[in-house]
Computed example of a mutant assay.
Amino acid sequence: MVYLKPQLFFTTPPSPCPYKEGEEERKLVTEISHDEAILQYDLMIKSGFRRSHTYLYRPQYNRPDYCLSVRVRVKDFSMRKSQRRVWNKNNDLTASVYNAVATEEQYQLFKPYVEGRHGDGDMSDMSWFDYKDMVDSSPVDTEIIEFRTPQNELVAACIVDWVHGGVSAVYSFFDVMHSDRGLGSYMILWLIDQARTKKLDYVYLGYWIKESSKMSYKSKYKPIEGLVDGVWEDISQDM
């Protein structure tokens, strides 16, 4: 059995849920231990935690079934016709995988994306230095994947954490002028394909709230499991 050193957890003050009016959210947070970072992350992502910078966190709500950590079961995933169309539409893109190092070119793609798609969120006013800190500060196995057209135009990027048995999609963004390509969907499909190639079991997609239309896209990737009362179970029929 694997043990970690004792960890200090703290709970944030309540704040409005960004996905539904009237709900309050707290976060259970712990700092990543640099000498046990990989092991700590491997264990805690299985308990529903996500990474942000050098911290691991898990949202807490009064309703335990309101916000679930979800992951795609890679070996059983099969593309739908609509997903196959997205895949084929983007087969001209070249994916390049890099160590997690921010570039100005990435930021010029990131900034209009968050302003246009998430202008009411707390990321919309992120400066270059904020973006650089988000990408560069990871103490775990983090990479950034860039997707480029044949003309070498950067049209999408995805920050990912590789964990034991899976990959976690930390944050993705794309050129909103290419919305017809379905780039957000394509990046998830690409990660599922890469996970299958690497013989990994899961692609972690963060959190899912059934009542949030912003999260409904996650229901397209089935079979999908949710962490319900501390146990991972198939929730495909509930989505």
Results as ranks from 00 to 15, higher is better:
227 L>E: 03
231 V>W: 01
116 G>L: 02
111 K>F: 12
165 G>F: 07
221 Y>Q: 04
193 D>R: 14
123 M>N: 04
148 R>D: 07
110 F>L: 05
28 L>S: 10
162 W>D: 08
227 L>I: 03
86 V>T: 15
205 L>W: 07
180 D>P: 00
11 T>R: 12
239 M>V: 09
74 V>I: 11
45 I>Y: 04
5 K>H: 09
18 P>D: 04
48 G>I: 01
142 T>D: 14
137 S>G: 08
231 V>G: 00
208 W>L: 09
43 L>I: 13
229 D>E: 15
38 I>R: 11
73 R>G: 07
101 V>D: 02
227 L>K: 04
112 P>S: 08
130 D>V: 05
51 R>V: 01
182 G>A: 03
114 V>L: 12
13 P>T: 09
91 N>S: 14
10 F>A: 05
106 Q>C: 03
115 E>G: 04
225 E>W: 06
28 L>H: 11
12 T>A: 08
158 C>Q: 12
82 S>D: 13
185 S>Q: 08
226 G>W: 13
126 M>D: 13
123 M>E: 03
147 F>N: 07
42 D>S: 14
221 Y>C: 04
18 P>M: 07
65 D>P: 09
37 A>D: 09
10 F>T: 07
154 L>G: 11
155 V>Y: 10
221 Y>V: 04
62 N>L: 13
228 V>L: 12
160 V>D: 06
23 E>S: 10
96 S>M: 05
226 G>T: 04
216 S>R: 14
203 V>A: 07
138 S>M: 07
201 D>I: 00
89 K>V: 00
88 N>T: 06
196 R>I: 00
231 V>K: 15
33 S>V: 13
81 K>N: 14
155 V>H: 10
138 S>C: 11
7 Q>Y: 10
138 S>R: 04
112 P>F: 11
71 R>N: 08
220 K>G: 10
13 P>V: 12
139 P>V: 08
147 F>I: 02
